Amino acid sequence: MKTFKAFVFALLMLGVSSAYAQQVHLKGKRVYLNDQPYGFLHKSGSVWGKDYLFQNTKNEDIVTAKAMHVVMPNGYDYVYYEVTFKATGQKAEMDNDPEFERKLAFDLAGYKVLKNDLLNPEGIQKFMERYPTTISKRLISGNTYKPQATTEK
C-alpha cells in the first residue's frame, strides 16, 4: 500500500511540475515559447559545422553561433560552438551535438535571453553561467593549433 501511495504521489508531482514547465518548440526556423513566436534560428555553412544566427521576431540579429574546429595533436578534428551575443559581445561555448540546433533554440528560449523582443540581461547571465568559455581554454592549453571558424564570410 505504501508503494502505491508513493507512486500516486510521484505521478501527481510530475503532473504539477509539467504544468509549470515552459513549452519550447522549434518548427523549421521558427522558435516558439509557450505557443507564442519567440524568434528565428537561421543556419548556414558546411555539412561538418553549420553556423547559426538567432533573431528576435523583428528580425534583429541577437546571437550568432559559429562552429570552431581545433585539430588535436592526434589528428582528431574537434568541433565546438562559440556563441556570441551581438549587442553585448559576451561569448559562451557549447559542445557540438547531433541535436545542436534544437539544443541552442531550447536553451535560448528556456533561459529567456529575450524579453518582449529585447535582450534580457538576467537570461543572458543564466545562459553564460550554463555555458562558460572553458572549452577553448581546455583544448588550446595542450594544443599548438588555434581554433578555426568553419566558414568564411
Rank of each mutant, 00 (worst) to 15 (best):
M1H: 12
T3F: 11
F4M: 12
A6D: 13
F9Y: 15
A10E: 04
A10Y: 05
L12K: 13
L12H: 11
G15R: 15
V16K: 07
A19D: 05
A19Q: 06
Y20D: 10
Q23L: 12
Q23Y: 14
L26N: 11
K27N: 09
K27R: 08
R30G: 06
V31K: 01
Y32T: 03
L33P: 04
Q36Y: 04
Y38E: 00
G39R: 00
G39N: 02
F40W: 05
L41P: 01
H42T: 00
K43D: 11
S44I: 11
G45H: 04
S46A: 04
S46I: 03
W48K: 12
G49E: 06
K50W: 15
Y52D: 00
Y52L: 05
Q55N: 08
I62S: 01
M68V: 08
H69P: 08
P73W: 07
G75L: 01
D77A: 07
D77R: 08
Y80T: 02
V83M: 03
T84R: 05
K86M: 05
K86E: 06
T88W: 02
G89W: 01
Q90K: 14
Q90A: 10
Q90Y: 11
M94L: 15
D95Q: 09
D95R: 14
P98Y: 10
P98R: 08
E99V: 14
E99P: 05
R102G: 04
L104M: 05
F106M: 14
A109C: 01
G110W: 07
Y111A: 02
K112N: 10
K115F: 07
N120Q: 01
E122L: 11
K126W: 04
F127Q: 09
M128P: 03
E129P: 04
R130T: 09
T133F: 05
T134E: 14
T134Q: 12
I135Q: 05
I135R: 11
L139K: 06
L139V: 02
I140W: 12
S141R: 08
N143M: 03
K146N: 12
P147K: 04
T150L: 14
T151D: 05
